[in-house]
């Protein structure tokens, strides 16, 4: 049913990803799909990496670890954005198209009142992407 499962990864906040990583790993195993871990970074230094190339190395290490953990095929893809604070959702949706993913598994928070005005990344990606999106809360 699924061949390429895309999982957006925030390397600075890995602790909130556990559920999404677990679900995507199991789905990949079930459908014999590949998991694409997608990170969005900026050109300026961040807490995670000095530059996008270093970010890619860290994401690759992360993907390799997940591959061992779940016994699946994985891949790491970094996308650089000029202004990730505003362009993150758009970059993720574009990434899903460019990578040819057929499912996005994305971590999100339980909606609060504020989400009625300012939707979460998961919610926005789900409303914009043309493929299935599984929002994990």
């Amino acid at each position: 049913m699924f061949e390429k499962i895309m999982v957006p990864v925030d390397l600075a906040h890995q602790e909130i990803l556990d559920k999404a990583l677990d679900v995507s790993g199991k789905l990949a195993k079930t459908y014999n799909a590949k998991v694409l871990y997608v990170g969005v970074t900026e050109a300026t230094p961040t807490a995670v990496a000095h530059n996008p190339a270093e970010f890619q190395h860290k994401l690759e290490a992360f993907a390799a670890k997940q591959a061992d953990l779940h016994g699946i095929e994985t891949e790491a893809r970094t996308f650089a954005s000029h202004d990730p604070a505003t362009d993150l959702n758009e970059t993720l949706v574009e990434a899903s198209v460019k990578l040819g993913a057929d499912l996005i598994v994305i971590s999100s928070h339980v909606p609060t009142f504020a989400d009625r005005f300012w939707a979460s990344h998961g919610g926005t990606v789900a409303s914009r992407a043309n493929i299935s999106v599984m929002v994990i809360r």
Binding site: P45, A47, H50, Q56, E75, T78, A80, A95, K98, L99
Partner: peptide
Amino acid sequence: MSEQPEELAIPEPEGAADIIDTEYEVGQ
């Protein structure tokens, strides 16, 4: 990686640069 079009990943390695070795982390 090879099956994907080239422009998808980080375009190119950033190449050599003289990174300053500091313990400080952005946003610490």
